[in-house]
Design a protein around this nucleic acid. Structure first.
Lengths: 134, 134
DNA sequence: TAAGTGCACTAATCGACTTAGTACACTTAA
DNA sequence: TTAAGTGTACTAAGTCGATTAGTGCACTTA
């Protein structure tokens, strides 16, 4: 299911988390699917269970999966995940706008920036999943 | 001019850069003022010249000062600095908006966010210097 | 030419991050 | 109750990058 690239300079847990996130995003792992246990996946990849644990923690923080102690890890429902991600993006954006305001940039200028971005043609890396526009 | 706090866990060069930035922002060091040389300031603070060098590099990157090899470091003109800072903020903001668009967030929602931030009453830490609104 | 300036390179130190080892608490089913 | 399977907390070793220091070079000015 997952292959580790030892030439990759990033930490193992980050690689594992990223690969799993991709599988979730592209739909291979559907909502509420049970992920392999930390021990079994660790055995399969020949690395320490704690490393898998950390990858799972990362995924949980990012909202991709949820954990039930004693039972296992499960893929988060698509709608929940999408809402969570959008909220994160919006929070970051709010910080940026506040910063702009404090820097003395007018709201007109910021609004113009927003419009120009949305007016630009779409290119590269489309959003993970985007059937519905809520 | 500057006092180092060894209880502070941050690196020395960061402390030095921050203190100098504050002096520049609050107007103690006016535009085109010559800063102390890396050697003299290092001697004054009893730290290595390279540490001061790094602090100055940081300040130059952030647009607070400019460097002339063989001559010294000088405080950037207020207008230049302000433009540079605003551009940095706007670039960061653009990235955020692109991310929002890719996440499937509508432009209306982003615009509403911008307006709500600018509608909120001003509070805490006002912008460094803000007599003119260009 | 000499003094003063910033800059580039290397080396030592130190701390944080990463990973592994181990033991514990929880859930489930026999 | 018991046993197997699950996630979690704690500590320790190893590794790697950031920070700081040391040294020498190139540039500007008088």
């Amino acid at each position: 299911m997952i292959v580790i690239d030892y030439r990759d300079k990033r930490p193992l847990y980050e690689q594992v988390a990223e690969k799993l996130a991709q599988l979730i995003i592209c739909g291979v792992l559907e909502s509420n699917t049970k992920l392999p246990s930390v021990r079994s996946l660790a055995l399969e990849l020949s690395i320490n269970p704690n490393t898998i644990q950390r990858a799972y923690n990362q995924l949980e923080q990012d909202g991709y999966i949820y954990t039930v102690v004693g039972r296992g890890n499960y893929v988060t429902d698509v709608h929940e995940w999408k809402n969570g991600y959008q909220n994160t993006v919006l929070q970051e954006l709010e910080e940026g706008v506040k910063k702009a305001r404090e820097a003395g940039i007018t709201s007109e200028r910021v609004t113009a920036l927003v419009q120009s971005v949305y007016a630009a043609p779409v290119q590269e890396s489309p959003p993970p999943r985007d059937e519905e526009s809520n």
